[in-house]
Amino acid sequence: NNDALSPAIRRLLAEHNLDASAIKGTGVGGRLTREDVEKHLAKA
């Protein structure tokens, strides 16, 4: 659900052409954090 993404996370996802649903969020309520996105990028 993109409504739960902060603007910074949306921008980071867009810059790397990532789909938020492909990344498991570890923030409050399962929200994506910058660390989640960076860890996903490091794996790729």
Rank of each mutant, 00 (worst) to 15 (best):
N1V: 13
N1A: 11
N1D: 14
N1C: 08
N1W: 00
N1P: 10
N1Y: 01
N2Y: 02
N2E: 15
N2W: 01
N2K: 13
N2D: 14
N2I: 14
D3E: 12
D3H: 09
D3M: 05
D3W: 00
D3G: 10
D3C: 05
D3Y: 00
A4W: 15
A4L: 13
A4Y: 15
A4C: 08
A4P: 13
L5S: 05
L5I: 13
L5K: 03
L5W: 02
L5M: 11
S6W: 08
S6Y: 05
S6R: 05
P7L: 05
P7A: 12
P7V: 10
P7Y: 01
P7W: 00
A8W: 03
A8S: 12
A8H: 13
A8P: 06
A8I: 14
I9N: 05
I9G: 02
I9E: 08
R10A: 13
R10G: 11
R10T: 13
R10F: 01
R10P: 03
R11E: 15
R11N: 15
R11Q: 15
R11Y: 04
L12K: 11
L12W: 03
L12F: 03
L12M: 13
L13Q: 00
L13F: 02
L13P: 03
L13W: 00
L13K: 00
L13C: 04
L13A: 02
A14Y: 09
A14N: 12
A14Q: 15
A14D: 15
A14M: 07
E15Q: 09
E15I: 07
E15F: 05
E15P: 01
E15K: 08
H16T: 04
H16R: 01
N17G: 15
N17M: 10
N17Y: 08
L18N: 01
L18D: 02
L18V: 10
L18G: 02
L18I: 15
D19K: 09
D19H: 08
D19C: 06
D19I: 09
D19V: 11
A20N: 04
A20T: 08
A20Q: 08
S21I: 08
S21T: 10
S21A: 12
S21C: 06
A22E: 14
A22D: 14
A22C: 05
A22S: 14
A22T: 14
A22G: 09
A22Q: 15
I23P: 01
I23Q: 01
K24A: 11
K24T: 10
K24I: 14
K24P: 09
G25W: 00
G25E: 02
G25I: 04
G25N: 03
G25Q: 03
T26L: 04
T26M: 04
T26V: 03
T26Q: 04
G27E: 03
G27Y: 00
G27K: 02
G27W: 00
V28Q: 12
V28K: 10
V28Y: 04
G29T: 05
G29M: 08
G29Y: 01
G29R: 07
G30A: 05
G30H: 02
G30I: 02
G30D: 06
G30F: 00
G30S: 05
G30L: 00
R31P: 03
R31N: 10
R31I: 15
R31T: 15
L32I: 15
L32V: 14
L32C: 05
L32N: 01
L32G: 01
L32T: 05
T33S: 06
T33M: 07
T33H: 02
R34D: 13
R34N: 12
R34A: 13
R34W: 15
R34I: 15
R34H: 12
E35N: 10
E35H: 09
E35V: 09
E35T: 10
D36I: 02
V37M: 04
V37Y: 03
V37A: 04
V37D: 00
V37H: 00
E38K: 10
E38Q: 09
E38L: 15
E38P: 00
E38I: 15
E38H: 10
E38R: 09
K39Q: 12
K39G: 10
K39L: 12
K39E: 12
K39H: 11
K39T: 11
K39C: 05
K39A: 11
K39N: 13
L41D: 03
L41G: 02
L41Y: 04
L41V: 13
L41I: 15
L41M: 08
A42I: 12
A42L: 10
A42V: 13
K43H: 11
K43Q: 14
K43A: 13
A44N: 13
A44M: 15
A44C: 07
A44T: 14
A44Y: 11
